[in-house]
Design a protein around this nucleic acid. Sequence first.
RNA 1: GGGCAAGUGGUGGAAUGGCAUACACGACAGACUUAAAAUCUGUUGGCCGCAAGGUCGUAAGGGUUCGACUCCCUUCUUGCCCACCA
Length: 800
Amino acid sequence: MFYDFKKIEKKWQKVWLDSHAFAAEISPTRKKYYLLEMFPYPSGKIHMGHVRNYTIGDVASRFKVLEGYNVMHPMGFDAFGQPAENAAIKNKTKPDIWTHKCIKEMEVELKKMGFSYDWEREFSTCDSDYYKWNQWIFLKMFERGLAYKKASAVNWCSSCQTTLANEEVVDGGCWRCHTKVEQKDLEQWYLKITEYKERLLEDLGQLKQWPERVLAMQSNWIGKSSGVDIYFRLKASDKVISVFTTRVDTIFGATYIVLAPEHPLVKELIKGRPEEKEVLHFMDKVSKESKLVRTSSDVKKEGVFTGSYAINPVNNEEVPVWVADYVLMEYGTGAIMAVPTHDQRDFLFAREHKLPMRLVIQPPAVNRQQPTDDMTEAYEGDGIQVNSGQFDGLSNSEGKIKIAEWMEQKEIGKIQTHWRLRDWLISRQRYWGTPIPIIYCPKCGVVPVAYKDLPVELPKDAPFTGDGGSPLGKVKDFIQASCPKCSGPARRETDTMATFFDSSWYFLRFCSPKYNSAAFDVQEAKYWMRVDQYIGGIEHAILHLLYSRFFTKFFQDLKMVDFSEPFEKLLTQGMVLKDGQVMSKSKGNIVDPDSMIKDYGADSLRLFILFAAPPETELEWDQRGLEGAFKFLSRVWRIQENLKDKADGALVRIMHKTIKKVSVDFSEFKFNTAIASLMELTNAIYQLGADKEVFLNLVIMLSPIAPHFSEELWQILGNKESIFKAAWPAYNPKLLIEENVELVIQINGKLRSKLQVPRGISEDELKELVFKDDKLAVWLGSKQPKRFIVVPQKLVNIVV
RNA sequence: GGGCAAGUGGUGGAAUGGCAUACACGACAGACUUAAAAUCUGUUGGCCGCAAGGUCGUAAGGGUUCGACUCCCUUCUUGCCCACCA
């Protein structure tokens, strides 16, 4: 009987589905385990990235099942979003119909991989049963002032005809279509994520089981920076320019200050002055530059003098006020003090415009007091304060503290923290998303939709062509509403929510997907949350994870959850490459999982993808590797035909060693080495011959990786119940201890011999044995050993 | 410019202070076969040597250590993230 994967896989997929084999329920007696992979956008076809992500999750999940945990392993679809609109236009259909067709196809593909999902919990974010709760959450945020509308310059993608969050701008382009992002003044909806900035930063410390890399990216993104706001009074008026610096120790070297071109004081400063025309011209020029050009670091810094002077509050010196493009209005106070001697950008600018410099931090071991023409670059390191009044002689790190305190005392500065994180822009001028539940009443103004009127259903028949403007604005029945407050005629909000809103809390919805009184059932969430293991791509390291952390903290404040972080442990799986490049349609190097399943079976595909690389690293696709996986399974399959009555003692020993190794490796997600030891066990079986017990243990250990295959063998060997009702094998520690150990003998750290010695041999006995060894005598000669180092059960090193 | 990660045979990778290259792919040889495929059994880092064995070898250089792929320093390369961030 050969390994007929087609028949076997079909058979067990049906059994698992029909018996709801992986449906999860609260059980007060069993320990729960919530395993979640990032849910997919339903494009219709799964790709190798999905296969890898979900295979890793499935093995972890099935392993936990075998270990006896009460496992919840759900799956759903992140179904709103622009591609469905584009596809619908292209295929002359509707996003709704298109998306549901894609979901159906994708379900089939996921089922063909044999993933152990609890399909009872499945939902799509485009179901009104789901997005109703998006609206509910939005209203809760609105009530607390966390959702608000404001006019400001926003990122605009002209190709997608919609706004973008800061997080969605990548290298100055749209994260989805790479079109250059423009700035546009628009009234938009924001979520006040900045209100949670301290907690979002601080709680990163709780995430001990997240990759360092992701923590660093999140912390960079939040961008806390501590320093001092310093007040420069203008010479000609009593107006004050506030500048932010992290290097207050260099304040005595501030020889000019620079405003961002958008700074509100600029126009006032230049009014009626001879410089007015030139400055206005400069401001106009900068405003036309895209952010991409302006922020690229190799562009020369340009600026103009305003004609005004300000007073440096620490020494009452007059310093000129400039306007330059390298100062950004969005960061800090939109104004800086320039210290050319100790900041490279200031240095280049000062040299270009012949502005004065003064050294205030003396670099160690350099005998130079004045700055100076021979400086070729700014000195940004540590040193001793000079030219700094009463602070001379302090180290600059002391100076930083003392000067800040002194300035606060004299009320010429304030210790201050600035953040990079901005509020989250969530409104989109698109159709296929959750309608924002707001009504504009001519009398009452901005009024939230009443909870009882949720959901605000997305009309099925919006005329959208992709030519811009919000499609919902063209649906008369939708726009017309009555004001929830005064019942008068009113107009409905036509923007929809960014889809990242949908995915910021779906992990909570999985706990009670059909719950109908709130976004989720607090009791169910109490049992299942937090997510014990979350698995997904590194591309979500900032956006999705940051937003999900924010929502969780919001629910904590609503007292709906009693924790502040949603994901206990995070694994970011590496990309799947072919010929050294990421698989992508445009590169034409896609390998279609479906055809691989057809040729080799889902189990072989799963095995290969786990064996070829550790989960976190990139994986190079190798067709021969997949064939190898199939051959290995076939090799294991054939063992059943040659089982002995009793296995050799040596083999039993190897089996126990393998159980230990595989157990540890599985819990640490080291699937590649787990598989290697299963292969070693298989090789040993081919040498020594196995009995039924050894073979069944091998099959159980393979079952998380190749579930259909193992289930079939389990049944063939006479078991009635599913293999996933079996217990994970235990190893006998006594069998791992061998009587004789092989010791490596080194001389001066070089391997010279090996000795079989009894376990627990004394050092003196060992010495005697070692000096009897002929091989070593050659090396030792007549030399007297200086040291004799013994690492028990491992090695001896003789130093001569 | 800043931060983080990585660099090991022909290839994917293993070893995180103690036998470098486990396991696999590929290659080569043998068995089976009329033959091929499949399968099974070997060999497979470089150099020297008939062999026993020796010697070099984990990006480069230095250091710590009885002992370093592993720890520390310097440099190079690659990848990722952030970035005129004050």
